[in-house]
């Protein structure tokens, strides 16, 4: 387990930790907009860390290029997708928890 392996396993574990936290957030948050926040924020961090960890495994060859390309692609597309989804939800009339009137707070919180 030389130095590179240790660093990459730390990165991997951190990435996995953020991924799991995002997933738990996705599952437990009461309202759509909080869920999308949880999903997309942790998504990008988990991607960076995990792919960073994998990058250290490769010996600077075609795989490295592919991994960097995937990382760039993910970093560009997944925030865009989340933004577009949130905008479309907003446009579609979905109310956030605070806006939805208090008495049906229980209903939207179930």
């Amino acid at each position: 387990m030389d130095f590179l392996d240790i660093v990459s396993s730390i990165l991997l574990l951190a990435g996995v930790f953020f991924g799991l936290s995002g997933a738990v957030g996705l599952f437990r948050f009461p309202d759509f907009f909080t869920r999308i926040h949880a999903a997309s924020v942790t998504d990008s961090i988990a991607a960076i860390l995990i792919i960073g960890g994998l990058l250290l495994q490769t010996s600077f060859d075609l795989n490295t290029a592919k991994l960097v390309f995937i990382l760039l692609f993910l970093l560009v597309t997944s925030p865009t997708a989340s933004h577009a989804l949130a905008k479309s939800a907003r446009h579609g009339g979905l109310l956030t928890l605070a806006e939805s009137s208090p008495q049906d707070k229980q209903e939207s919180a179930k």
């Binding site: 560009v76 597309t77 865009t80 577009a84 446009h91």
Partner: peptide, 9 residues
């Protein structure tokens, strides 16, 4: 049209 971000990306 309304999604400027999507256009650029």
């Amino acid at each position: 049209e309304t999604h400027r971000v999507l256009h650029v990306v």
